[in-house]
């Protein structure tokens, strides 16, 4: 076992990809000489050179478009968008080109592209740097969407994503980069299909992903002190969703709370809630709860930002509301 960080796990994954496949290159704003805004690619330009660790101009539409072109022409690019907030400028490329080219070309072209981006709030970077728009991408046919919430997944999802013949978007929650933990020396590629049960329990199912997985785990610890055993599911793949793992848990616990850092209305939590109702209606003992972000631009002051975001205490309160309800 090695003690490491999420950031170091991402960097190890990038190094592995660049080492194992000569078609792979990393491209994005400040990924080269500066080492990445979140220091994920620090040192890689020295190891692999500026041809394979490419600094891009501040133009998301242009360099995502270039990545799509490279993927169509046989490369296996990894494009880093500094944060999901700036991916709005690349949305046209992702939705209209990356996601549709296999279809539009009748299968002549595929786009084996991986786009990594930081997401999420909690670091006092205010209204234009704190979005969580995973649900948008999870609505787009033609792309796969992943959210590594653990060191193993930060380390292991990238290589598997690069083997996918179609575009994959990986969301790294910025609050996770400093997370420390143990990683086995044998850690490597992981599956990108299934959700994972991170904590078994019998009384309620907490469904989360990314950094909010850890808030759900903390809520589960708080609940355990009151003899309420929460099962915690880490979605891992946001598109497609692993319905089987979700429903197996909800059928057992009969209650579900979905935690999603997106604005509540139109969130991925809504999709999960709708599916639980469609597929496990008769197993539910209480309405499906959602703990999401308040529908405001993310505030700058710490106390207001904390108030806007999902927190373990809010999850605990949602669970208690569930246990008080009887269908």
């Amino acid at each position: 076992m090695t003690t490491t960080t999420y950031r170091e796990a991402v960097r190890t994954a990038l190094r592995e990809a660049l080492t194992r496949d000569s078609r792979t290159f990393l491209m994005g704003e400040d990924v080269g000489r500066y080492g990445g805004t979140y220091a994920c690619s620090k040192g890689l330009i020295d190891e692999f050179g500026p041809e394979r660790v490419r600094d891009a101009p501040l133009s998301e539409s242009a360099f995502v478009g270039a990545g799509i072109g490279a993927a169509m022409a046989g490369m296996r690019p990894i494009v880093e968008i500094m944060t999901v907030n700036f991916s709005l400028l690349a949305l046209d490329q992702i939705v209209n080109n990356a996601a549709t080219l296999r279809h539009m070309s009748g299968g002549q072209f595929s786009v084996p592209l991986v786009i990594r981006m930081a997401t999420g709030a909690g670091r006092q970077v205010a209204a234009q740097h704190s979005h969580s728009l995973e649900c948008w991408y999870a609505h787009i046919p033609g792309i796969r969407v992943l959210a590594p919430g653990t060191l193993e997944d930060a380390r292991g999802m990238l290589w598997t994503a690069l083997q996918d013949p179609d575009p994959v978007v990986i969301f790294e929650h910025a609050a996770l980069y400093n997370m420390e933990g143990e990683l086995p020396d044998t850690a490597g590629p992981v599956d990108i299909e299934r959700a994972a049960v991170r904590r078994p329990g019998r009384d309620v199912t907490l469904i989360a992903f990314g950094a909010n997985l850890h808030k759900a785990m903390e809520a589960a610890r708080l609940l355990a002190a009151e003899k309420i055993e929460a099962e915690v599911i880490d979605l891992r793949s946001l598109r497609p969703l692993d319905d089987a793992t979700i429903m197996a848990s909800v059928r057992k616990t009969r209650r579900a709370v979905v935690i999603d850092e997106a604005w509540r209305t139109g969130s991925l939590a809504a999709e999960v809630s709708a599916r639980v109702m469609e597929q496990a209606f008769y197993d539910l003992d209480a309405p499906v709860g959602r703990v999401c972000t308040e529908e405001v631009p993310i505030p700058y002051p710490k106390h207001l930002e904390d108030a806007a975001l999902p927190q373990p205490e809010k999850i605990v309160a949602a669970v208690k509301a569930q246990l008080g309800a009887r269908a």
């Binding site: 649900c135 948008w136 999870a138 609505h139 598109r239 497609p240 969703l241 209305t265 139109g266 969130s267 991925l268 939590a269 809504a270 999709e271 809630s273 709708a274 639980v276 109702m277 469609e278 597929q279 209606f281 539910l284 209480a286 309405p287 499906v288 709860g289 959602r290 269908a327």
Partner: peptide, 23 residues
């Protein structure tokens, strides 16, 4: 997946579950 119907369904799950006779 992720369509606006999900939000409508989620609101019904939150506000009308006990009145529902079917999913």
């Amino acid at each position: 997946s992720g369509g606006w119907g999900a939000e409508v369904a989620a609101r019904l799950a939150e506000h009308a579950l006990t009145a529902l006779l079917a999913p």
